[in-house]
Amino acid sequence: MTILSVEHLCKRYPGFALEDVSFSMEQGTVMGFIGRNGAGKTTTIKSILRLVRPDSGRITVCGMDAETHEREIRARIGYVSGSAAYYPRRRLRALTAVTASFYPAWDSVRCAQLMQRFGLDEDKRVSELSEGMKVKYQLALAMSHGAELLILDEPTSGLDPVSRDELLQMFVQLCDKEGVSIFFSTHITTDLDACADRITWLRDGRVAASGPLDAFRAEYVLARGPEAQLTDALRAKLIGATVRAGQAEGLLHAADAPLAAGLALQPADLTAIMVHLEREAEP
């Protein structure tokens, strides 16, 4: 079942535009939503949440049209933004109570467990939390009302490596054991190597790629070796190549790998693919 579908989404601002953005994700999967800062990730997410009104396009969440079922959709999703901090002088207890009142399916036992697991003290004020703890608090709220789809906008940006790993493991568990779907926007692409099933890559407001992560990674290899080994044919095929101290490095389409005789080839991870493709695209 398709839990999230974005079709031909367009939103134009002076100096920036989302153009014909389309992708979809299935229930019980993790989709990584990647792109550079300013690529349009947050605008896309805000369009899904109807915080931004798209110029055109259609978005469906849990089978419902986002334009006409704003309230119903929000009841079935959880939204966590890495940068959001609200009511800094309020205690977590008060904000939790208000949030809980809006969800008939609120699970207070689970909420208490998550607060304990994340080391969150309900008597603390929001302003007393670190950035990472604020994200954890939002996650605890989102996961306590039985959200079917978690929309996470840069949730791991402010977290230390251990907390990040803990969260990523939790995402995998939520997905595998509870069938929760996770739409995960980030520019820390190594996080997605650990948990994403599919990725959608946004570049300058357009979808550069959308599909299974493994298939996307299998499309490329990373080539490294002495610059002297680069033939003209190979130079033409290398993507985002750099040369330093006589050593060349670049991305290759897997089909072009036979051209790289004399260079060491290794599987490319998401970070390497994104960095090289972005570098290649720069004017």
């Binding site: 309230r71 609200y86 989102a142």
Partner: peptide, 17 residues
């Protein structure tokens, strides 16, 4: 200043509400 709109954006309510 308390970013009430950000808080509301996580709740199941419409902007009109």
């Amino acid at each position: 200043e308390n970013r009430d709109a950000a808080f509301m954006s996580v709740l199941p309510v419409s902007k009109r509400d």
